Each structure stands twice: as C-alpha cells, then as structure tokens.
Computed example of a mutant assay.
Amino acid sequence: MTETIRACSTTDIDEEDVMRFDHGDKTYAIFHAPDGKYYATEGYCTHEKAHLGEGIVDEFEIECPLHFGSFDYRTGDPTVAPACVKLKTYPVKIEGNDILITVG
C-alpha cells in the first residue's frame, strides 16, 4: 500500500543540503539538489545504518558520516566504498511549498 506524506516545506532545507524526516517507524533523508529539484531516500546508510541526515552533501552525492561511503541520492546507487548496496529512493512531488514523498 502506498501513501503520500508531507515531509517538510521547501523553505526548511537549503540548496545542496539534506534533512532527516521521520514518519511512523521509518526514517527518510530529503535532499535539495543543486538543480533545484528535491529527492528522497531511505534515511540510513545501507553499510552500517548511520543516519544520512548527518552526512555531507556534495553536488548529487551524500557521504555517510560513519565510514564516508557515498551514494547518488537521485538514483540510490553507491558511488564510493564501503557503500555497496543501493539506497531505496522515493518519488517526490512539490505542492505549493510542501515536499511530499510517496512511500510504501
């Protein structure tokens, strides 16, 4: 079952930044890319479960704060070891100033 939920406002997250979003028992990472678009992934690194909301954004990549593996947050693909398992990504829609993600 899919569900569309409000993650945050477009004014809550600076360009080239990441924000943690918790909903129920799940954690997500919301990204504001340098191309002006917004993206969403699962919130934890697939390597050691460090929260990506504490990572460093560089262009279209998020670097895990624990072991410095990186992912392309647009696709979820790992780009730097030790990250080797793809992140789950979620569709994002903007309505007014609201960032909505479809989960489930």
Rank of each mutant, 00 (worst) to 15 (best):
M1S: 15
T2P: 14
T4V: 12
S9E: 12
I13W: 02
E15T: 11
D17N: 07
D17E: 09
V18W: 01
M19E: 07
H23E: 11
G24E: 08
G24D: 10
Y28G: 06
A29E: 01
A29R: 01
I30D: 06
F31W: 02
F31Y: 15
A33V: 00
A33D: 07
D35Y: 02
A40Y: 00
E42C: 12
G43N: 06
Y44A: 11
Y44K: 11
T46Q: 03
T46S: 10
H47I: 01
H47P: 09
K49F: 15
A50R: 00
L52V: 00
E54Y: 12
E54M: 11
G55P: 04
V57F: 06
V57D: 01
E59M: 12
E61L: 04
E63F: 12
E63P: 10
C64A: 08
P65K: 00
H67V: 02
F68A: 14
G69Q: 08
G69T: 08
S70I: 03
D72I: 00
R74F: 09
R74N: 09
G76W: 04
D77G: 00
T79W: 06
V80K: 13
V85F: 03
L87K: 07
V92D: 10
K93I: 06
K93Y: 07
D98Q: 13
I99V: 15
T102M: 09
T102L: 05
T102R: 08
V103P: 11
G104A: 06
